[in-house]
Protein backbone atom coordinates (compact mmCIF):
# COMPACT_ATOMS: atom_id res chain seq x y z
CA UNK A 1 0.00 0.00 0.00
CA UNK A 2 1.38 3.34 -1.00
CA UNK A 3 0.32 6.04 1.38
CA UNK A 4 1.46 9.63 1.43
CA UNK A 5 0.67 11.73 4.44
CA UNK A 6 0.60 15.30 3.21
CA UNK A 7 -1.42 16.68 6.10
CA UNK A 8 -0.24 20.04 7.32
CA UNK A 9 1.39 20.79 3.97
CA UNK A 10 0.29 23.59 1.74
CA UNK A 11 0.55 23.75 -2.04
CA UNK A 12 2.56 22.83 -3.93
CA UNK A 13 4.19 20.43 -1.42
CA UNK A 14 1.45 17.72 -1.51
CA UNK A 15 1.45 17.52 -5.30
CA UNK A 16 5.26 17.47 -5.43
CA UNK A 17 5.37 14.62 -2.89
CA UNK A 18 2.78 12.74 -4.90
CA UNK A 19 4.80 13.28 -8.04
CA UNK A 20 7.94 11.94 -6.39
CA UNK A 21 6.10 8.81 -5.21
CA UNK A 22 4.59 8.20 -8.65
CA UNK A 23 7.97 8.54 -10.31
CA UNK A 24 9.95 6.48 -7.87
CA UNK A 25 7.56 3.62 -7.27
CA UNK A 26 5.07 3.67 -10.15
CA UNK A 27 2.34 2.36 -7.83
CA UNK A 28 -0.84 0.86 -9.28
CA UNK A 29 -2.67 2.16 -6.24
CA UNK A 30 -1.90 5.00 -3.91
CA UNK A 31 -3.53 7.12 -1.27
CA UNK A 32 -2.70 10.71 -0.49
CA UNK A 33 -3.89 12.28 2.74
CA UNK A 34 -4.40 16.04 2.58
CA UNK A 35 -6.19 18.48 4.83
CA UNK A 36 -7.07 21.35 2.53
CA UNK A 37 -9.20 21.76 -0.55
CA UNK A 38 -6.54 23.26 -2.88
CA UNK A 39 -4.22 20.34 -2.12
CA UNK A 40 -7.03 17.88 -2.83
CA UNK A 41 -7.73 19.56 -6.15
CA UNK A 42 -4.10 19.64 -7.24
CA UNK A 43 -3.33 16.05 -6.23
CA UNK A 44 -6.42 14.86 -8.15
CA UNK A 45 -5.36 16.85 -11.19
CA UNK A 46 -1.84 15.51 -11.04
CA UNK A 47 -2.85 11.87 -10.66
CA UNK A 48 -5.35 12.15 -13.50
CA UNK A 49 -2.73 13.76 -15.71
CA UNK A 50 -0.58 10.67 -15.05
CA UNK A 51 -3.30 8.26 -16.12
CA UNK A 52 -4.76 7.38 -12.71
CA UNK A 53 -8.44 7.09 -11.93
CA UNK A 54 -9.20 8.96 -8.73
CA UNK A 55 -11.79 9.25 -6.06
CA UNK A 56 -11.80 11.22 -2.84
CA UNK A 57 -13.01 10.16 0.61
CA UNK A 58 -13.76 13.07 2.86
CA UNK A 59 -13.94 13.01 6.64
CA UNK A 60 -14.43 16.50 7.99
CA UNK A 61 -11.48 18.54 6.80
CA UNK A 62 -9.47 15.45 5.93
CA UNK A 63 -9.40 14.16 2.37
CA UNK A 64 -8.02 10.87 1.19
CA UNK A 65 -7.30 11.00 -2.51
CA UNK A 66 -7.19 7.46 -3.90
CA UNK A 67 -5.52 6.87 -7.25
CA UNK A 68 -5.71 3.54 -9.07
CA UNK A 69 -4.51 2.04 -12.30
CA UNK A 70 -1.53 4.29 -12.91
CA UNK A 71 0.04 3.58 -16.27
CA UNK A 72 2.69 6.24 -16.05
CA UNK A 73 5.86 5.86 -18.02
CA UNK A 74 9.10 6.58 -16.19
CA UNK A 75 10.10 10.19 -16.23
CA UNK A 76 8.07 13.35 -16.31
CA UNK A 77 5.41 13.87 -18.94
CA UNK A 78 5.00 17.59 -19.17
CA UNK A 79 2.04 18.81 -21.16
CA UNK A 80 1.52 15.94 -23.46
CA UNK A 81 -1.34 13.92 -24.75
CA UNK A 82 -1.55 10.24 -24.03
CA UNK A 83 -1.39 8.34 -27.26
CA UNK A 84 -0.45 5.03 -28.74
CA UNK A 85 -2.13 2.86 -26.13
CA UNK A 86 -3.35 0.54 -28.81
CA UNK A 87 -1.18 -1.24 -31.33
CA UNK A 88 2.51 -0.66 -31.84
CA UNK A 89 4.41 2.43 -30.80
CA UNK A 90 6.44 3.76 -33.69
CA UNK A 91 9.06 6.41 -33.15
CA UNK A 92 10.35 8.29 -36.17
CA UNK A 93 13.67 10.00 -35.72
CA UNK A 94 14.48 12.72 -38.22
CA UNK A 95 18.19 13.57 -38.15
CA UNK A 96 18.44 15.84 -41.19
CA UNK A 97 16.44 18.56 -42.89
CA UNK A 98 16.38 16.62 -46.16
CA UNK A 99 15.76 13.03 -47.17
CA UNK A 100 18.64 10.97 -48.46
CA UNK A 101 21.80 12.19 -50.16
CA UNK A 102 22.58 13.01 -53.76
CA UNK A 103 20.65 16.14 -54.62
CA UNK A 104 19.88 18.54 -51.75
CA UNK A 105 17.03 20.27 -53.53
CA UNK A 106 15.38 16.95 -54.23
CA UNK A 107 16.12 15.87 -50.65
CA UNK A 108 14.31 18.89 -49.26
CA UNK A 109 11.27 18.25 -51.46
CA UNK A 110 11.21 14.61 -50.47
CA UNK A 111 11.31 15.57 -46.80
CA UNK A 112 8.28 17.84 -47.15
CA UNK A 113 6.46 15.03 -48.89
CA UNK A 114 7.57 12.54 -46.24
CA UNK A 115 6.24 14.66 -43.38
CA UNK A 116 3.00 15.22 -45.29
CA UNK A 117 2.55 11.49 -45.77
CA UNK A 118 3.53 10.43 -42.23
CA UNK A 119 -0.04 10.64 -40.99
CA UNK A 120 -0.78 7.52 -42.99
CA UNK A 121 0.89 5.56 -40.19
CA UNK A 122 -2.23 6.32 -38.19
CA UNK A 123 -2.34 5.77 -34.45
CA UNK A 124 0.82 3.71 -34.42
CA UNK A 125 2.89 6.83 -35.01
CA UNK A 126 3.81 7.62 -31.39
CA UNK A 127 6.75 9.99 -31.34
CA UNK A 128 8.35 12.21 -33.94
CA UNK A 129 11.81 13.29 -32.89
CA UNK A 130 14.01 15.91 -34.54
CA UNK A 131 17.77 16.03 -34.04
CA UNK A 132 20.74 17.69 -35.74
CA UNK A 133 19.67 19.68 -38.83
CA UNK A 134 16.28 17.94 -38.58
CA UNK A 135 15.30 20.64 -36.08
CA UNK A 136 15.21 23.10 -38.99
CA UNK A 137 11.95 21.46 -40.08
CA UNK A 138 10.22 22.85 -36.97
CA UNK A 139 11.07 26.53 -37.33
CA UNK A 140 9.39 29.56 -38.75
CA UNK A 141 9.24 29.45 -42.55
CA UNK A 142 9.93 25.71 -42.85
CA UNK A 143 7.91 24.04 -45.63
CA UNK A 144 7.05 21.26 -43.20
CA UNK A 145 5.70 23.49 -40.43
CA UNK A 146 1.99 23.35 -41.27
CA UNK A 147 1.94 19.57 -41.58
CA UNK A 148 3.86 19.18 -38.32
CA UNK A 149 1.40 21.47 -36.57
CA UNK A 150 -1.40 19.34 -37.95
CA UNK A 151 0.23 16.20 -36.55
CA UNK A 152 0.70 17.85 -33.16
CA UNK A 153 -2.91 19.03 -33.09
CA UNK A 154 -3.90 15.47 -33.85
CA UNK A 155 -2.28 14.43 -30.56
CA UNK A 156 1.15 13.30 -31.73
CA UNK A 157 4.07 14.18 -29.46
CA UNK A 158 6.85 15.97 -31.34
CA UNK A 159 10.20 16.19 -29.57
CA UNK A 160 12.80 18.67 -30.76
CA UNK A 161 16.43 18.44 -29.61
CA UNK A 162 17.24 21.50 -27.51
CA UNK A 163 21.00 21.18 -27.90
CA UNK A 164 20.55 21.15 -31.67
CA UNK A 165 18.27 24.21 -31.68
CA UNK A 166 20.82 25.96 -29.53
CA UNK A 167 23.65 24.94 -31.85
CA UNK A 168 21.92 26.46 -34.87
CA UNK A 169 20.78 29.42 -32.76
CA UNK A 170 17.14 28.54 -33.48
CA UNK A 171 15.72 28.25 -29.93
CA UNK A 172 13.50 31.28 -30.48
CA UNK A 173 12.38 30.23 -33.95
CA UNK A 174 10.95 26.82 -33.16
CA UNK A 175 7.19 26.84 -33.80
CA UNK A 176 6.11 23.29 -33.13
CA UNK A 177 6.89 20.44 -30.73
CA UNK A 178 8.39 20.22 -27.26
CA UNK A 179 12.03 21.02 -26.75
CA UNK A 180 13.67 17.93 -25.34
CA UNK A 181 16.95 16.46 -24.13
CA UNK A 182 18.90 13.28 -24.85
CA UNK A 183 17.49 11.48 -21.83
CA UNK A 184 13.94 11.92 -23.14
CA UNK A 185 15.04 10.75 -26.57
CA UNK A 186 16.78 7.66 -25.20
CA UNK A 187 13.78 6.88 -22.98
CA UNK A 188 11.44 7.22 -25.95
CA UNK A 189 13.65 4.85 -27.99
CA UNK A 190 13.51 2.31 -25.20
CA UNK A 191 9.73 2.51 -24.91
CA UNK A 192 9.06 2.43 -28.63
CA UNK A 193 8.26 -0.85 -30.36
CA UNK A 194 9.92 0.35 -33.52
CA UNK A 195 12.33 3.19 -34.26
CA UNK A 196 12.59 4.47 -37.82
CA UNK A 197 15.59 6.63 -38.64
CA UNK A 198 15.43 9.14 -41.46
Amino acid sequence: MNKIDARGLSCPAPVLETKAAVENRHPRHLEVLVDNEPARQNVVRFLESQGYRTHVDQEGALYTVVGTGGDSVPGPKPVETASGDAGKKIMVMVAADRMGSGDDLLGAKLMINFIKTLKEMGDELWRLVFVNSGVKLTIDGAGTLEDLKGLEEGGLTLLVCGTCLDHFDLLEKKRVGQTTNMLDIVTAMQLADKVINI
Binding site: C11, P12, V15, P38, V43, R45, F46, S49, P78, V79
Partner: peptide, 14 residues
Protein backbone atom coordinates in the same frame (compact mmCIF):
# COMPACT_ATOMS: atom_id res chain seq x y z
CA UNK B 1 -2.02 26.03 -18.63
CA UNK B 2 -0.73 22.50 -19.07
CA UNK B 3 1.19 22.64 -15.80
CA UNK B 4 -1.86 24.03 -13.96
CA UNK B 5 -3.91 21.16 -15.35
CA UNK B 6 -1.39 18.81 -13.72
CA UNK B 7 -1.90 20.48 -10.35
CA UNK B 8 1.37 22.42 -10.37
CA UNK B 9 -0.25 25.33 -8.60
CA UNK B 10 1.41 27.31 -5.80
CA UNK B 11 -0.38 27.91 -2.51
CA UNK B 12 -0.57 31.64 -3.19
CA UNK B 13 -2.94 31.05 -6.11
CA UNK B 14 -5.55 29.60 -3.77
Amino acid sequence: LGFAAMGMVPGGTH
